[in-house]
Every structure is written in C-alpha cells, then in structure tokens.
C-alpha cells in the first residue's frame, strides 16, 4: 500500500462523487476554450443577417416602447415624478434581459451540448460560464443604448429633471455579478433537472416571461405594494425585483435603497449559484447515460 501511495497520479477517474468537485486549476487551464465559446456565440448569432448586432439595440427599444404605451400610457402606472416612463422601462428591461437570457441560455446546457459532451471531456461548467460571459457583452451593448437615451432625456429634454445617478452606483459592478450568478445558478439547476425530466423545459419558456411580471420590470415595487398589498410579498422577496429596483435606484435615483436589499441579493444569488453548481456537478458525471 505504501508503495502505491508514493506514486503520484495526476488524477483519478472513479465513481465516487464529491459534493463540490470543482478543479479550479483545470477550469483555468481551459480558459481559452471559454473565450472561444464566447467568440463563437457572438460571431455566429448574427452571421448572414443584414442588421447584425443592431438587433441587440432593437429588441429592448421596441419592448420599452410597447411597455410604455401599454403600462404607462394606457394602464397609467406611475413611474415617478420627473422620470420618463420610457427610461424607467428601458432600465427594467435592460437589467431583466441579462438575467433572463442567462437563465434561458444556460437552462438547456446539457441537451444542447449533448453532442460535444458525449465525445470530449472538459470541465462542463465552462459552457454555462461562457454563456454568461457572452451575454455580458450583449448586456454591455444594451447598457450603451440605455446610457444613450439617458443622456438624451437628461440633457436634451426637460422631462427627466428628477433622474440622477446616486452614489450607490459604486455597487453597480457587483449588481451585474449577482444578476449573472442568479441567472447562471437557476439555469444550471434547470439544465440539471431537465436532463432527466424533460417536463421542466416546457416551463422555462413561459415561466421566465411570467417571472418578468413578478419582478417589477414595468412597475415600481412601491406601486405594487400600494395596489395589491396582500400579494406584495411575492414580488418583494423575488431577488430579481430587488436587483431591478437597485438598478433603477443606482441609475435613475428612483425607489428606495438599503444595504439590507443589497445583502439580500448577494446572499440569495450566492446560495442559488452554489446550489446550481452542486447539482450541475452531480449531473455532469453521468448525464450522458440519462440525457
């Protein structure tokens, strides 16, 4: 036995499953793969389209226009004094989009990559990570759109006199990370579960849409609490509500801010992410037998 121990094996393949079996050295080794996946996602999506990456602009713009028409002009949801409804909605949609695309795009990781996963080994977590990173670039572009309109409303119109960024802005990068972790975590959980139970995949499509209505994207949380106080906990404890409210507070100065909210999002997104990682890890070892 002693002689065997002295042999240093690089790694061992066995049936034993550690709870968290993340080899960070290995993930680091495959960092080029992550970047190449990102590159693939970016350059292939809009190949042979005329407008190309312009589609990144068009989708949130049109959605915001429709939301403003329906929810603000028609239904009369107030977005706060001195805050243009369009800007309010654009802020909500921009931040929601990042979370939503991360969730949807990672939720079929196993199924979509079955062909690759079945033939070659690399740390599987690279794939959802690359999705989150490539979505980050799209998010960046959409953020630019938001900034553009922000500048337009603040400097060229008199409608946005109340909109001003707050000092809480320093937490903005962290907020993005939490959004990504939330989407990634949930996506990994769903992809691990749908691996065996395909039922869930039917839920993801419209579930994400429903969740959007429960995440204060097109209304302020305070307005919901005022109108439907008995259901407000549903929206209030939804971490994405907090994320979007924080996003709007940081950029537009609407809503309230407390360090407790920030902490809440941090804790929830980390828990979901870790939980996702554990399930994902458990699944990746033998998913090819059950997919």
């Amino acid at each position: 036995m002693a002689a065997q121990k002295s042999e240093d094996w690089l790694y061992t393949i066995s049936s034993k499953n550690k709870l968290i079996d993340l080899n960070f050295k290995e993930i680091w080794y495959y960092r080029d793969l992550l970047l190449l996946f990102v590159k693939r996602d970016i350059i292939t999506v809009y190949k042979q389209t005329i407008l190309g990456p312009l589609w990144y602009f068009i989708q949130p713009l049109f959605t915001s226009v429709i939301f403003t028409l329906i929810f603000n002009n028609l239904a009369g949801i107030p977005t706060g004094e001195g805050i243009p409804s369009f800007l309010f909605n654009l802020a909500g949609i921009t931040s929601w989009n990042y979370f939503g695309t991360c969730l949807v795009d990672t939720s079929d990781t196993f199924k979509k990559n079955q062909a690759i996963f079945g033939k070659v080994y690399f740390p599987r977590v690279i794939t959802p990570l690359s999705v989150v990173v490539s979505n980050l670039l799209k998010f960046g572009i959409q953020l630019l759109v938001f900034i553009g309109f922000y500048i337009y409303f603040v400097f060229f119109t008199s409608k946005a006199y109340a909109a001003s960024p707050t000092t809480a802005m320093i937490g903005f990068p962290l907020l993005i990370v939490f959004m990504g972790l939330l989407g990634l975590g949930l996506g990994m959980i769903i992809s691990s579960l749908t691996n065996k139970y395909r039922d869930l995949k039917f839920l993801v499509g419209f579930g994400v849409q429903l969740l959007m209505y429960g995440s204060a994207v097109m209304y302020p949380l305070s307005y919901f609490e005022e109108k439907l106080p008995e259901y407000s906990w549903l929206v209030k404890y939804n971490p994405m509500t907090t994320v979007i409210e924080l996003f709007r507070y940081m950029t537009l100065g609407v809503g309230e801010f407390s360090i407790f909210q920030f902490g809440y999002v941090a804790v929830v997104s980390l828990i979901i992410f870790l939980f996702g990682l554990i399930i994902f890890n458990k699944t990746e070892k033998s998913f090819i037998d059950t997919v």
Partner: peptide, 15 residues
Amino acid sequence: LSRVTSPSTGSIKTK
C-alpha cells in the same frame, strides 16, 4: 477513459 461518463465501480488512475 475520456471522462465522458463515470464508472459504476472501480477507478482509473493516470499520470
């Protein structure tokens, strides 16, 4: 061997 799936029992050690 290529770690696409894991064995039910036993182990593979590699250098």
